[in-house]
Write a protein that binds this DNA or RNA. Sequence first.
DNA 1: ATGTGATTTGTACTATCGTACAAAAGATCA
DNA 2: TGATCTTTTGTACGATAGTACAAATCACAT
Lengths: 236, 236
Amino acid sequence: MVRKPTSKETARKPNMREAILAAAEELFATNGFNAVSVRDIAQAAGANPGSVTYHFKTKDGLLLEIYRRHCGPMNLRRSELLAAARRVRDLHDRLEAIVRAYVVPAFTSGSDLAGGGARFTRLRAVMSAEGNEVARKIIAQTFDDTSHAFIDAIHDSLPHIPRTDIVWRSHFLLGALYYSLVTPDRVSRLSRGEADGGDPANAIEQLVQATVAAFQAPALDQAAPARRRAVASSKT
Amino acid sequence: MVRKPTSKETARKPNMREAILAAAEELFATNGFNAVSVRDIAQAAGANPGSVTYHFKTKDGLLLEIYRRHCGPMNLRRSELLAAARRVRDLHDRLEAIVRAYVVPAFTSGSDLAGGGARFTRLRAVMSAEGNEVARKIIAQTFDDTSHAFIDAIHDSLPHIPRTDIVWRSHFLLGALYYSLVTPDRVSRLSRGEADGGDPANAIEQLVQATVAAFQAPALDQAAPARRRAVASSKT
DNA sequence: ATGTGATTTGTACTATCGTACAAAAGATCA
DNA sequence: TGATCTTTTGTACGATAGTACAAATCACAT
């Protein structure tokens, strides 16, 4: 007995469910979790508030489903790009390729693309800032593997830099990445219109170039982090 | 007629007002604006909910007062440090001093210190992520001058780098700074306990060193940002 | 001591929150 | 067509939100 894919076991009318997910993603990403009500989401999706409860049971459940929808494909894409990057021979080129593999999927603009997309990355940034519990749990258990893989890859291409420094610098990378997606207008404002903070290609190039240089910075001596030669010499 | 400073025109009992401000700052910085209720703040400060209304009128007014309290002193401190940094002769040392002047006040741990402090910086990070309107307004009109001063100073010490690139990189710096204060535990986790993400001195050194290197990265050619030499060929 | 203005308390009001649930509507197949 | 299941709607409930306000309390000058 062959079941038709259109009827029972999947949703009969997936449009509304998808519309709610998209609306919630957009609203959460721009306003935070607590500032957005279920009614706001329903209205933005052209649905009834009760429909949200029907599909996702709770507001937390809705957020959880957004994460479930994106995490897998995004990590897969990153893994593919990372594997390709690791095959680059030249160490400097490899480093740049690795950084690019980390950054590019986060900036994908496609709405339903497997890359995850800028909107989902921005959502993660906002949830992380709000200390959202649901997000914190799913992030730690989903992204840490990927993060370790990237850190290891970077470490391989920069053997003389201690792992600790690489962790810090990749942390800075993620922070810069998040912030670029959260307030792109600030770049436009501070550059007096000369740069478009909202242009993904621009942001990616700037971020990759700056980050590669940051990774290549000399290692910090662990023992005495406070005493550094540079600033003490002439003034201060 | 000489008025005594202790009585009428100031608050008679500033303790409670200060306690409310401190509690609100702490709660907003860790949970976001909307997740924290006036009653939560009052309870944390050992005060009555009505007391918050009395001193600050509205919840927005409370947030506004927190910003008013910190912005002035923090920018003053940064200006002092920046002025000192600009007097450094060696260009590389000067760059490091400038970055340090930007970073250090943001990490100050003192509770009522003029530096502004890590808690206030974290608050700004969270408000920025939430797209808080009150914060957005006061930030744009208070911090942009300082940001421009730093950008100009960095530009002076790196004349061959276009201003646009410097804007981007200082944007990344702020993002990294924010993120380090928002989720310091992530550093500890990813480094498997080898680094303490919560240690301000450590974070400052790592951030300064990585950022100086990022600023010193070669300039991006504005015309063709997509085509870069590094990744296409085998060597640089 | 007492009056006076500044603060704190207690409480209440209205709005909105997340969620539940019964009824209506739509779809699918015998 | 009618039976049955899924989805959508409409509405309601209890909890909690921000804020207002009168009464109580406090600190201090006279």
